[in-house]
Design a protein around this nucleic acid. Structure first.
Lengths: 151, 151
DNA sequence: TTGAATTCCTACTAATAAACTAGGATTTCT
DNA sequence: AGAAATCCTAGTTTATTAGTAGGAATTCAA
């Protein structure tokens, strides 16, 4: 499992906020209830997302969270990197990491670079608006009873 | 880090065996020494590789391990899946896993499927012979410093 | 102006997984 | 016979994950 609950729950939260985009602040408790997740745990996950500028918060009653910008401007890759760190397969291909002494003749490193590139190509090419579009498309093709479940 | 030491050490072992292909059995201790890894730990990693038919072993003195087939016939993806399990980003996209009840309108699942596909495209398109070729290419460029790019 | 609803923050804890280690049984070559 | 190796099971330690707990600060609304 390459994503822990941090990344997976975080993505669900952000999708929820994207679906709510333009409708004002959404309290974390609502998100947690919709997804049947612990709100105190989600609190920990949304904190770095706020600090990174992906969401804004309004404190106090009637407060909550909302996306800091349009869903189309937030890549899935950003969310994942904030919550999980880089999805690199090994330390030696992490940014900022000093090259290991064998880097120039290390064939496994070359492999790791290709894997990293493959993953980043996917997660940086999909944004929250894409997921919102998928969500609506999938729901329209589904019967009404099920749709209510998620509403 | 999407690969644990199991996958990373396993890949190094298999590359070592690929470099030794055709030269007879190689004792695990030699591999461990070359890579400065614990041989008793590697023992645990090579066991599933043998049981999956990727390597064969010869017991007793002068014994060791060797690839069960040509390096070009062993995909990096096979090695990783044996040692790490599937690199799926979430349970719901694991093979054999029952579809979750929301699968048909779950936009995050669609994302997970794309990530899975992106990873598998890379790791199943590279085999051990490719890594051996990279290894030789990288080493030649290193030893003859500053003769970049060519050859 | 008070109380409820909310974010914000730090610290703690329990469970699980990762990364080995230990020890011995078995096999095979010389 | 003895050394060199694989093979097997079980233990141990350390790190990470997945949360809980508790309270301070902020803001709205009655």
């Amino acid at each position: 499992m390459i994503l822990s609950t941090r990344g997976r729950y975080g993505l669900k939260m952000m999708l929820e906020l994207a679906l709510n985009y333009g409708k004002g602040a959404m309290p974390l408790k609502d998100i947690a209830n919709k997804q049947s997740l612990s709100d105190t745990y989600l609190e920990q996950l949304i904190s770095p997302l706020r600090k990174s500028g992906l969401v804004t918060s309004t404190r106090g009653a009637q407060g909550g969270y909302e996306l800091a910008k349009e869903p189309s401007g937030i890549k899935v890759g950003e969310i994942i990197r904030i919550l999980e760190g880089s999805l690199a397969p090994a330390e030696c291909v992490l940014e900022g990491e000093p090259e290991c002494s064998k880097a120039d003749y290390c064939a496994t490193r070359l492999l790791y670079e290709k894997i990293t590139e493959g993953i980043n190509n996917v997660i940086d090419s999909i944004n929250l608006q894409d997921m919102v579009d998928d969500y609506h498309r999938l729901n329209n093709n589904t019967n009404i009873k099920r749709r209510n479940e998620d509403e």
